[in-house]
């Protein structure tokens, strides 16, 4: 218990760093991933703006983005990170690769949520003379909302996992603490404490996500 008190500030700071990295990277991942997901849905064959060319390109980009291991992606985009935030190490610098890794993930999540919508509902909107933009804003987004919320929750939880690797570029956070103190210095208590905090964090995020999704789900 003493050890835990001794390290509590460390873990508290780590928690804040993790939340900061995950929160900001999730924000950017959604900002970019959502339009990406919408685009890959509507350019499908038989959807509201079919375009094989765009669909294929986006599909390929997403697949490539998702198949690169995070640790490699993080190192590979260091020049890009440096340009964007002025540094390639530190918590803020870790946000860039986290967001980049999450964008294609969000894209797929958005895609699968929107493909759940019955084609008949979209056809009905077309039969009323809706423009593609109206269909996106008034049909696709509101109808997919519960699925989108669950998908974003899933992304947040995945980002917590990825953020553990951010320690490799001095990003800090709970995962970094677990590796440096718990693994490398054999501070088992610290390791257990960080794991407990991570479990709680994931649990709370999932719980909140489920609640919000259920609130909007009238299916």
């Amino acid at each position: 218990m003493n050890n835990l008190t001794q390290y509590s500030e460390l873990i508290w700071n780590g928690t804040l760093e993790t939340l900061y990295m995950v929160g900001v990277s999730l924000f950017f991942a959604v900002i970019i991933g959502l339009p990406l997901g919408i685009l890959i849905v509507i350019t499908r064959k038989d959807h509201i703006a079919p375009c094989q060319f765009i669909y294929r390109i986006l599909d390929t980009i997403i697949n490539i983005g998702r198949s690169i291991p995070f640790i490699i992606l993080m190192v590979a985009i260091i020049p890009f990170t440096r340009k964007l935030v002025g540094s390639s190490i530190g918590t803020t610098a870790a946000i860039v690769p986290l967001a980049v890794a999450a964008i294609p993930f969000v894209g797929r999540v958005v895609e699968s949520a929107m493909l759940e919508i019955s084609p008949g509902v979209i056809e009905a909107a077309r039969s009323m003379g809706a423009t593609p933009l109206q269909i996106i804003m008034k049909v696709l987004l509101p109808e997919a909302l519960p699925g989108l919320i669950l998908g974003i929750t899933l992304t947040a939880i995945n980002l917590i996992g990825y953020s553990a690797m951010a320690g490799a570029i001095g990003g800090g956070g709970l995962g970094d603490i677990a590796i440096r103190y718990g693994y490398q210095r054999f501070r088992v208590t610290v390791m257990i404490a960080t794991v407990v905090v991570l479990v709680l964090l994931v649990d709370i995020i999932q719980w909140i996500g489920n609640k919000i999704a259920a609130y909007y789900d009238h299916r």
Binding site: V121, R126, G129, H218
Partner: peptide, 19 residues
């Protein structure tokens, strides 16, 4: 699109917005 606004349509599976 303007013409379609003057042609209503109903469907076997209703196709209502669940939201």
């Amino acid at each position: 699109r303007e013409r379609r606004k003057k042609i209503g349509m109903i469907f076997q599976h209703f196709n209502l917005l669940s939201s």
